[in-house]
Design a protein around this nucleic acid. Structure first.
Lengths: 322, 322
DNA sequence: AAGAGATAAGAATACGCATTCACAGCAAGG
DNA sequence: CCTTGCTGTGAATGCGTATTCTTATCTCTT
């Protein structure tokens, strides 16, 4: 791989001059400029980003930390981030925490090792003080995306509010008993439960973690038989919702008459399911673009700033399943 | 961020000694070793990977180039790659070509800029000589994954063979008219068509590119009405298959009796659809692990080697839709 | 007890780039 | 014709690390 020094030797100038030509900020004699450019083109010169990064300025690397890239929602997010970053000349180093806090920690070390310019992170828990503190000690800007993190710049949809919207919708549709499938610390569940409690349905709300399809089936059946009021299931994501639909079908129950089902994430498949799946859509592309823009501004115009939290609205996509 | 020189100053030793302690290969006095390690721990030292990379050895960076990370199959692939790479101490820089050859080229420049140690790529076309030549000029090892690329190390499932397997299965099940949904240069279609032609069904095979759901619906309907023999649709991926199922349902046709449907990729949703989707599974995790292993061996034990092509078997997952 | 060999640590250097500093050449002004 | 000021270029330097080379200290042998 050819270097500036090499080009300098070939064109009988000094290395700094080559640097000046290639960066184009300083004035340099036209003849020399041409000679150097020609030589660079001829040998297909590529800047050594490591040397440039070491030298002190930016590395033009962004760390992207997600919980699970195999999840369609995050995959989509990553894609949008990658596009936005590329447009502004940054490359991304991708990390998967796999919902394991230990990995999450280790990745921050990788971030430091490579002197990444900034980080876009989907933290595992919204309220992990350890992680939070660790991030604060980092001297690179970190923007939280998809999750709300107090005291950090964050771009997110208010899951609690979305959960409440779902609750309201289900009540409107006449459902009176509710089941949430997902982690109980999930903001969606918190908002969902709170809203229903305010309306006097605290006892009618249950929360189940999805371990395994067969177990869910047993629990779902028991739950359904356990009451007479009209029942609805709120699934933490569309994949869960799909499984619920399958189980409900097997139980011989009709959707949306006997059981209502609503998902989350607005995965593309929802539109083609039978019945078409009601779900909640997040402005992924918008969030990603704005988060990247914000982060890059932070990077390129450093200085004191107070973290801001940017909430985006969730949108109910109402289809046949409710 | 603290450096080796800084630690050296604090512990009253020289920078090379700190390097020796931290790398642990050379002998150094126990007392000094302890002092340095304590100091490093206390200040939470992190190696500057840029400097190390510049210095000449490895960068411990891998380039991962996929066509579309938002596609569940590639997302899954990326996840497996990331896991395998992490286990051996490598981080990955992710690129999305978005099926745009120009992006594909540009990414190779990024690869060179960051002095990436190696590349795992899903090329857009299996037979792009330009790309192929460009890759050969690169002085880093490149392993092709998911696609077969002549003259390069590649890990892939033989799509043509898989297409033939599908054809055979559909014939076994009594289907006699066939439609493929996907790009016509797709290996799956090639093998599918060839096998059917050998059995005398050349005229009964049609190929359609999926542009848009409504258009597909019209074409599918016309195709179905256009003959009397039992019909089956082979979709290039599970998402297409899902759309086909939806259309077929709308047309009031029964699956698998009147129309058979089979997908590709074995997405997790297939198991929960109604009817459960027959599909083709690729050993993604295996391929990813082996590809990464192979690439890292190439990196860590350089030298002459002749590229090898590793074909993996596709597995038919037969469920209710055929 | 003195010289040879081993061992541990410091000094110097290179990697590729950007930047600061110094200097040569030249135009303009007195 | 000499000074002032500007412009374009080269020399020197630092970023953080690993490595090579050198030197000082110590152990062992005879």
């Amino acid at each position: 791989m050819i270097t500036m020094a090499e080009i300098a030797r070939l064109t009988h100038v000094s290395q700094p001059t080559v640097s000046r030509v290639l960066n184009g900020n300083t004035k340099v004699a036209p003849e020399i400029r041409e000679r150097v450019l020609a030589c660079a083109r001829e040998h297909d010169y590529q800047l050594n980003a490591l040397a440039k990064g070491l030298q002190g300025s930016r590395t033009h690397l962004l760390g992207v930390l997600v919980t699970d890239i195999a999840n369609g929602f995050f995959a989509d997010l990553a894609k949008q981030i990658e596009i936005a970053a590329r447009q502004r000349g940054y490359s991304i180093i991708l990390f998967n925490s796999d919902y394991n806090p230990q990995n999450e920690q280790e990745y921050l070390d990788v971030v430091r090792r490579y002197r990444v310019d900034g980080v876009l992170a989907v933290p595992i828990r919204e309220t992990s003080t350890e992680w939070h503190d660790y991030v604060k000690k980092l001297d690179v800007p970190v923007v939280t995306i998809t999750r709300h993190a107090a005291g950090l710049d964050s771009f997110y949809v208010d899951h609690a509010a979305a959960g409440a919207q779902v609750a309201q919708h289900l009540l409107d549709r006449g459902y009176r008993r509710f089941l949430f499938i997902g982690k109980d610390y999930d903001g969606k569940y918190v908002g969902f439960h709170r809203y229903l409690a305010e309306k006097g349905f605290a006892d009618a709300t249950t929360n189940r973690v999805l371990q395994d399809h067969d177990q869910l089936r047993r629990e779902l059946e028991a739950w359904y038989r356990g009451g007479t009021a009209r029942a609805a299931v709120f699934a933490g994501n569309d994949i869960y919702a799909l499984q619920v639909l399958d189980i409900v079908r097997k139980l011989g129950l009709s959707v949306p008459e006997q059981v209502g089902v609503i998902g989350f994430d607005d995965t593309s498949m929802g539109r083609y399911l039978n019945p078409r799946l009601s779900t909640v859509s997040q402005p992924t592309a918008d969030m990603a673009r704005q988060a990247v823009g914000w982060l890059l501004d932070l990077i390129e115009h450093p200085g004191e700033h107070t973290p801001e939290e940017h909430a985006f609205p969730a949108q109910l996509i109402l289809r046949e399943s409710t």
